[in-house]
Design a protein around this nucleic acid. Structure first.
Ligand SMILES: [Mn+2]
Ligand SMILES: [Mn+2]
Ligand SMILES: [Zn+2]
Ligand SMILES: [Zn+2]
Lengths: 138, 138
DNA sequence: ACAATAAATGCACTTCTGTTGCATGATTCC
DNA sequence: GGAATCATGCAACAGAAGTGCATTTATTGT
């Protein structure tokens, strides 16, 4: 976060102006953001460039996609030490029905689920929906 | 299943020819189906009619939607005694990365998850991805 | 410093899914 | 039978994701 340039270079991504803006925007965001969110955050940004920027970030395990069921893919920075590149970091996501924001609950891993014989789990997606802490006023 | 006409009338849905076809198609399906799947199953079917048929079925708790993360909404018949109308039946879904089919695991309910203070869960979606029993050859 | 090469960006366009408007056909109700 | 209601089919639209290609920007090698 402090040295975004260095961080990105370490990840093998050239720190262009646009990429740094996107990275900082996500770093300052407390909730996951859609491509449109990012597009609206920078008046002078092209959607395709942002799209490919996010894809690059994803390939290099800088961000991860979130499918919270709203129909729009969301993006959030990976946690420090996240091994997204090798395997999924199976934390759960929470979508607030009130403020419509989605957050990573990185401390809450998806529990192991017993499956019927013959089923082999490789990946999982758990999204809880309800009222977030901000909206529950508590 | 035996008396589809009667079943639908009991649910408050007029058993038209198209609706019966869709219902039977889903009843015979072992996996969840997309709108396109259903469209392709009946050469002479209009997409809009099928779309609204599924919506009607959903409103009357005959089918439930499944968002397995593939980008296409899937549909499956509700289980007998499912109280979809009142609240979600929080069973999990399994998507096979090999055959690309998605199944309801109605016997496997989503476990209760402890959330941070202030978060109130109202709904949940859990999708496991991997290899299904048919594809694991076991 | 300069040319050659590679990477990033911007614009236009396409595809795919879901959705709605509206006219027509069918069914139910009185 | 006629009015009213419901179901269907065609067309068109909307939103998001993704692709092609030309242009600009950065890197590399001499
Ligand atoms: Mn996350
Ligand atoms: Mn199901
Ligand atoms: Zn909220
Ligand atoms: Zn399979």
């Amino acid at each position: 976060m402090i040295q975004a340039d260095k961080f990105m270079e370490d990840k093998g991504v050239r720190p262009t102006a646009m990429r740094l803006l996107v990275f900082r925007f996500l770093a300052e965001s407390k909730t996951a953001k859609t491509l449109s969110d990012i597009e609206n955050a920078f008046a002078k940004a092209d959607r395709t460039t942002l799209y490919r920027t996010l894809k690059t970030f994803e390939d290099k395990a800088i961000v991860h996609q979130i499918d919270d069921g709203t129909g729009m893919t969301k993006y959030a920075l990976c946690e420090e030490g996240c091994n997204c590149a090798i395997e999924q970091d199976l934390h759960l996501h929470f979508h607030c029905n009130n403020c419509k924001e989605t957050v990573c609950l990185t401390a809450h891993k998806i529990p192991h689920i017993n499956l019927p014989d013959g089923y082999v789990a490789e990946d999982a997606n758990l999204v809880l929906k309800g009222i977030c802490d901000k909206c529950s006023g508590q």
